[in-house]
Amino acid sequence: MRSFTYARADTAEQAVRDNDADGCVFIAGGTNLLDLMKLQVETPEKLVDISRLPLAEIEEREDGGLTIGALVPNSDLAADRRVIEKYEVLSRALLAGASGQLRNKASTGGNLLQRTRCYYFYDLASPCNKREPGTGCSAMGGFNRVLAVLGTSEHCIATHPSDMAVAMRALDATVVTLKKDGDKRRISIHDFYRLPGDTPHIETVLEPGELITHVELPAPVEGARHVYRKVRDRASYAFALVSVAGVVTVEDGRIAHAALAFGGLGPMPWRDDAVEAALVGQAPSDAAFGAAADALFRDAQGYGHNDFKIPLARRTLIATLRELTAE
């Protein structure tokens, strides 16, 4: 690990002030950042410790939604009764991720900003456009079994690793930030992540030094069923090959509301309006579910080892929709 200077902030305002140069990084739980620093994938010159900021509360808003402090640990968020009762897909997604120890440390804000687990991103001996822009992508012709089939570019096929963020997309969350100039900003989760294009090292729309302070959930969809289904190589403590977060309502025998987000398939937690358009107004049936899968994969591209993800995700989506719409 390269050495760094360290500052502990007591307020969000102080944290953005302390983040005063290129090479400054906020640290909260640190479970991903420190791992990357040990390997020198990340080499920050200064860490601004935000773990003591008063941002660890979950509060109900008057509009029926929840405001989640950026420092709420993943385990507390998963076990919160309001989350379980109104946003079960979020609890399920969190509980499907990592281990008990990691969930106790990992923060809500940090989880959104996790880096990919692409093998080549971690291997300093291999070219990687995300780690070192312009050097090339080793995954494209390499071991890419776990990597993306949607939203890729010729420069990067990394997947976003988070389970939590997939549920956040299905729930239409909003990321609230504090910018360096002191302005607050509200960013829809749908606008928060960037496709890799030719700049795969830039993963979100956050500006340098911008701090996530909260994540807001809108009021829950009345009468919706929630499912998070994760398919992985072992039964616990593994990243998703494919995951589906679904929030669906059925009224008078027809799908009235469908929000579906996907993990393990793309460079960001994936959501596609065309999938939902294929479902809303339809009576639940395998034909309708298959049409939704067709819409999801209309532009999918496998890279060899990961070709299996397309049929796997198709079946996972259909199984999830059956569960979401079963009488």
Partner: peptide
């Protein structure tokens, strides 16, 4: 009182 991975956190924190 909470279990964590002590290898993945800085002592200074």
């Amino acid at each position: 009182g909470r279990r964590i991975n002590s290898c993945l956190t800085l002592a200074v924190m």
